[in-house]
Amino acid sequence: MSDEQALVSTATIQPERILHDLQQLWAQMAVDQADSGGVLRACAMTLVVAAEDESDADRAREIAGVLMHNHPSRAVILRPGAEAGKGADLDARIFAECWKPFGKAQQICSEGIEITAGRSGFSQVTKFLVPLRVPDLPVVLWCRGTAALEAGPLEPLFPLADKIIFDSAHVTDADSALQFLRRLRGRGFRVADLHWTRLTGWREVLAHLFDDQALDPGEVKSAQVTFGGPSVTTCARYFAAWIRTALPAARVTIASGGLGGGPPGLRSVSLSTGSDNLTIALGSDQCVEVSGAGRHYRSMLPSTSEEALMQEELGIVGPDPVYERALSA
């Protein structure tokens, strides 16, 4: 079930009113559901989602609804709009996302606030977000779209967040995007990149080979990361950096797999000790093929849907030392 309640648009947002209306929404839902197991208000964080544009906001809202099941939160969806409300540059409405765990009568619900901000209203969003955060719980800011990886209107929101999530999948200049993330990291912000998260399946396959002692890490002399697409991607840079931090003595190179070789992204990773080689190559059906060092098998990669990537990132609200090392390398 998904419940929604629209607030009357106002010329300016009144956070106290939004919080009051949320209280009323909960009280009403408790009454409505009293005979069928009741509702439980669940919240473990504030998730602020800055949508790229108006059409992206619907998708953002949909994903936030899915994420709430595993990471109950107060979701604040920032919807950019040229014209927010009638004559208003800022507009807000509240909603509740409810679900019933298998076999249980009680519904679990998380709450959300959708703020539509026109061009001039966006500058005021920060001051409204402060009182709308759930006190004492972490704030995660998800900046959707490539434009977020450049200095822009979202910057004032960064200090509010305990973690800021970007996605560099579609940037045309990987090095600039990484530079931007490093700068933020240098200013003390905890950043994450969903294009790094997409590598988890690959990294897990490689790490497991070393759990199995397929190669002695001390003996790996070189590694090559091959990417597809017209130019080097952040994921290739990340993967190479990750190997470099793990195997400082190895020579790590990045190579292009050629333009005709499918979509941008990681194509293969090879490690060599001189006498032994190990390759993980992208196969069909969301699989990678592992070969070398006496092994030959396929391994399924986990889903890389935005929902799955965000689930993973929301599970890490504290430091992420492996990513931070790879980003800095």
Partner: peptide, 19 residues
């Protein structure tokens, strides 16, 4: 036991060995 330099316990579990 050789330490695995690729371990990332926040993201994935240690591999269950072939057995």
């Amino acid at each position: 036991e050789i330490r695995n330099p690729f371990a990332d316990p926040l993201r994935f579990e240690r591999r269950v060995p072939e057995c």
